[in-house]
Simulated scan of single mutants.
Amino acid sequence: MNETVLPADHGDCQQIIGILSRIGDKWTVLVIMVLHARPHRFNEIKRALSGISQQMLTRTLKSLERDGMVRRTVHATVPPQVEYALTDLGFSLSEPVAAMGAWARANLATIARNRSSYDQARAL
């Protein structure tokens, strides 16, 4: 098995943990995937993500905007239209996120079998 060697200086670990926490959040992953294809308006994103509350979507989009992964554009229309799009940084994140999604999809049946076997063995 390959071992990852960590540098002796772990000074940036807390920052890295914060970033991994953000990008590992299920809503972040789903928002990134929705925006990968094209920019969307807020309600389009909300409709695409079944189960997300307006408050959680707002919080997620603000965090992604703060981190520079999403760009918020207000169009001067009546009423004003707001559109969200991935930045170059956001697109660079969408590639490994898509790979993780593909891995999960490819392994769904195996994981379901493993979970069932585990639960049955523990139930005895």
Rank of each mutant, 00 (worst) to 15 (best):
R71V: 13
R72C: 14
I32M: 13
R59M: 06
A85Q: 08
L64A: 03
N43E: 11
T58A: 14
E95H: 04
E65N: 09
R66P: 07
A104S: 07
D25I: 00
L61N: 02
S94Y: 04
V78Y: 11
E44D: 12
M100K: 10
P79G: 01
N107G: 03
D88S: 05
G18E: 01
L20R: 12
A48H: 07
G51N: 08
Q81L: 15
I19T: 02
I45H: 06
R41N: 02
I16F: 06
D25G: 01
M100T: 06
D88M: 12
T110E: 11
S50N: 11
W27C: 12
I23D: 02
G101P: 00
K26T: 07
I16C: 07
M69W: 08
N114G: 14
I16P: 04
H75E: 05
E44P: 13
P79Y: 05
Q81V: 15
W27F: 14
V74E: 12
W103R: 08
G68I: 03
I52T: 00
N43L: 11
L57Q: 02
A98G: 10
R115V: 14
V70K: 15
A109V: 08
R38E: 15
L64W: 00
A106S: 10
L20H: 08
V29G: 04
P80L: 03
L61Q: 04
I17S: 09
V74D: 09
P96H: 06
L61M: 07
G24Y: 12
W103M: 15
R66I: 09
D25L: 07
Q55N: 07
R59A: 01
V82G: 00
N114F: 07
L93Q: 07
Y84F: 07
A104N: 04
A112E: 12
V29A: 00
A112N: 09
M56E: 07
T110Q: 08
W103H: 08
P79M: 01
M56T: 05
G51V: 05
